[in-house]
Design a protein around this nucleic acid. Structure first.
Lengths: 224, 224
DNA sequence: AAGAGCCTACCGACCGGTCGGTAACATTGG
DNA sequence: CCAATGTTACCGACCGGTCGGTAGGCTCTT
């Protein structure tokens, strides 16, 4: 009836199902979305849907794997060859915010939100790929430290601070809101990389309280 | 049998139910936790549980309201009277990380994770209380700007960067992990407040190119 | 003929929620 | 002092509906 003939399906159909399912799961959560609803959104019956997938958890796993592919393609692959580690980190942050704000891939949002939904090997596999991204950031930072481009901070804390700033965005960003993607990107780049570069504990004390190393009296002075 | 008498209950029992339910929901998610399981964990039948609550969503709402009470008591109330705005922000970050890392209140974690689960008025009420916290951070920052203690950045972006860093912690922190609560707190305080204080766009260019004075508000030069 | 693709029909388990009933108290009136 | 009455806390049984998942058959293409 509705089906306009039977296409040969070269895997394109499968990906369409993943994208449709991802849209729903992103809106209502994994447990909050039934296979019935996913099937209907794919213009299939439930049994028809099960012709393409094994079960619900495997579907989530496929969505997340696909999401990791997309993320790595749109972020890591695009910045990994940048020579300068600081510029690499900057570009990485820019790309990362881009992925989160443009709701292009609901799959990535699902990875962010459903961080404890998968179980067993599937969970381990996705966690492993996430960890690789953390290490990517850590090592870019460490490289920058070695070159004397940034302060020597704990790399993992720096990486998770980076990630917290840019990934938390998915919880509050609204495309039609007051803040544009550009403003957010610029603001966070400025804030984060200033924090990496500035010497010492920063932020001068209020009065003439005893501080070890004063930076500048006005607070808007230049670095020493 | 198990019931040790039938006291008229001064509300203590109700809170115990909220805490038990919060523990479960925090572990398995809201949609992933059945009323049956919650009732059993409270040593009640499902019907017995429904004597104390109206329905599942109202239960979640009660947990979140209680969580907001706890959070405001352990963070905002403890720092709101600190005169110096920068010290207020510092203390705020310290307290906030504390609440997230010590799994003391699962209710707060639920608020963080289930950010889009509630509907209608309940959702609006919780969102309102969250917004008040964002405004609390924004205005502490703006106050610091007015005093010349920090750079003039977009307050909302600063607030959400602050929040992203400290709240994202719930996704990765493990009490027995390599990083202690103290390390995380110190590292993030250092990084964030250095970013607030440092002049200009920070981070020198690769070659030793002149960074000079970049305008703070507009951030760094974009694409190269 | 083979098989991909999809359907109707159905399964047992479980979902959130409610019903009437009851044991254990507190309060009150005599 | 004690019984009648009311209230609170709770249970067993059950509701209609939905959950994830499957068996088996039909159709269309190759």
């Amino acid at each position: 009836m509705t089906s306009a003939g039977r296409r040969p399906d070269d895997g394109e159909r499968y990906r369409a199902i993943l994208e449709t399912a991802a849209r729903l799961i992103c809106e209502r959560g994994y447990e909050g979305t039934s296979m019935q609803e996913i099937a209907a959104a794919c213009r299939l019956t439930k049994a028809g849907l099960y012709h393409h997938i094994q079960n619900k958890e495997q579907l989530l796993f496929a969505i997340m794997s696909y999401g990791m592919d997309l993320f790595e393609g749109q972020v890591i692959a695009k910045v990994k060859d940048i020579e300068d580690p600081v510029e690499r980190l900057r570009a990485c942050m820019r790309r990362n915010i881009e992925v989160v704000t443009r709701g292009a891939s609901k799959e990535v949002i699902i990875i962010l939100h459903e961080h404890a939904t998968l179980t067993g090997e599937a969970r381990e596999y996705i966690d492993q790929r996430k960890k690789e991204y953390v290490r990517f950031i850590e090592s870019a930072f460490s490289e920058a430290v070695k070159l004397g481009r940034v302060r020597p901070l704990e790399p993992t804390i720096v990486a998770f601070s980076f990630l917290g700033m840019v990934l938390w965005v998915y919880k509050w960003f609204k495309p039609d809101g007051r803040l544009t993607e550009e403003q957010i990107t610029d603001g966070m780049l400025d804030l984060f990389f200033a924090g990496l570069a500035a010497p010492g504990a920063a932020v001068p004390e209020p009065g003439s309280a005893p501080t070890l190393s004063r930076v500048a009296a006005t607070g808007v002075g230049e670095k020493k």
